[in-house]
């Protein structure tokens, strides 16, 4: 048993888990989540400032409401006739979120979007529209593989003495988007691909075959 066996087993287990989730949830739900996760990730990477600004605005409204509520409560307690003085909550959203928090806020917004997409697709897409099958499993695995470079570097921060690396290099416009995608490819599929070593060609052939067979199997199902 080689030193890489545990990580290989963990990876296989991870892939099987997401394949099973994809099979259970069905094709359309998994596709919707894939679009939201991949599209949302790259869009947010390109618009980190905008994401931060939106979160600040939302928090600003919440803080404003809290402040008004607190004033109202204080006024009611004092019988309404006395001066209630300074507002109880004086902190604004920008006090909580500085520009340095952009990456964190972007990641949290993306994670929230992802969670919302999972919950919404579970409720909004009926089982009849989201058929199970090999394709659904493949999409589930695709989702799982996409989460490795997005979540893993942040989870590794919990493990001592392991450095955290960024998976994206935000830039401007199309070049920034392409740079992010290259980073993503290198840090996810590139690394996974390297660990497969000499098995790469045969696994690529199997992946291509499984994909085509999965599509052909939908033809059979639709046969009249």
């Amino acid at each position: 048993m080689s030193a890489s066996t545990p990580s290989t087993v963990a990876f296989v287990f991870y892939v099987l888990l997401f394949g099973w989730i994809g099979f259970r949830r069905g094709l359309f739900r998994e596709l919707s989540v894939l679009i939201v996760s991949v599209g949302g990730f790259f869009l947010l990477q390109q618009n980190q400032g905008l994401a931060l600004e939106i979160v600040r605005q939302v928090l600003g409204v919440l803080f404003g409401l809290l402040s008004v509520g607190a004033k109202l409560l204080a006024s009611l307690r004092s019988g309404g006739g006395e001066d209630i003085g300074e507002p109880v909550y004086t902190l604004g959203a920008s006090d909580w979120l500085s520009d340095a928090d952009q990456p964190t806020v972007t990641f949290l917004v993306w994670a929230g979007l992802l969670l919302f997409a999972y919950l919404l697709t579970n409720k909004a897409i009926p089982d009849s529209l989201s058929s199970s099958g090999i394709l659904a499993s493949l999409l589930g695995i695709g989702n799982g593989l996409f989460y490795i470079p997005t979540f893993a570097p942040r989870l590794i921060a919990f493990i001592p003495e392991v450095s955290v690396s960024s998976v994206s290099s935000p830039g401007d416009g199309m070049q920034g988007l392409l740079d992010s995608m290259t980073d993503m490819m290198q840090s996810s599929f590139g690394d996974i691909w390297q660990t497969l070593g000499p098995q790469q060609p045969i696994l690529a052939a199997i992946a291509l075959t499984v994909l085509l067979v999965a599509v052909i199997s939908t033809l059979r199902r639709g046969q009249t």
């Binding site: 060609p201 045969i202 052939a205 075959t209 085509l212 067979v213």
Partner: peptide
């Protein structure tokens, strides 16, 4: 980066290409 993932670079030998052909 993309050149690493060209079809013939993923499967440089002709043998693996027989698998999808045979199965299909």
């Amino acid at each position: 980066e993309l050149i690493r993932y060209l079809p013939q670079n993923l499967m440089p030998s002709p043998t693996p290409w027989v698998i999808p052909i045979a199965i299909l």
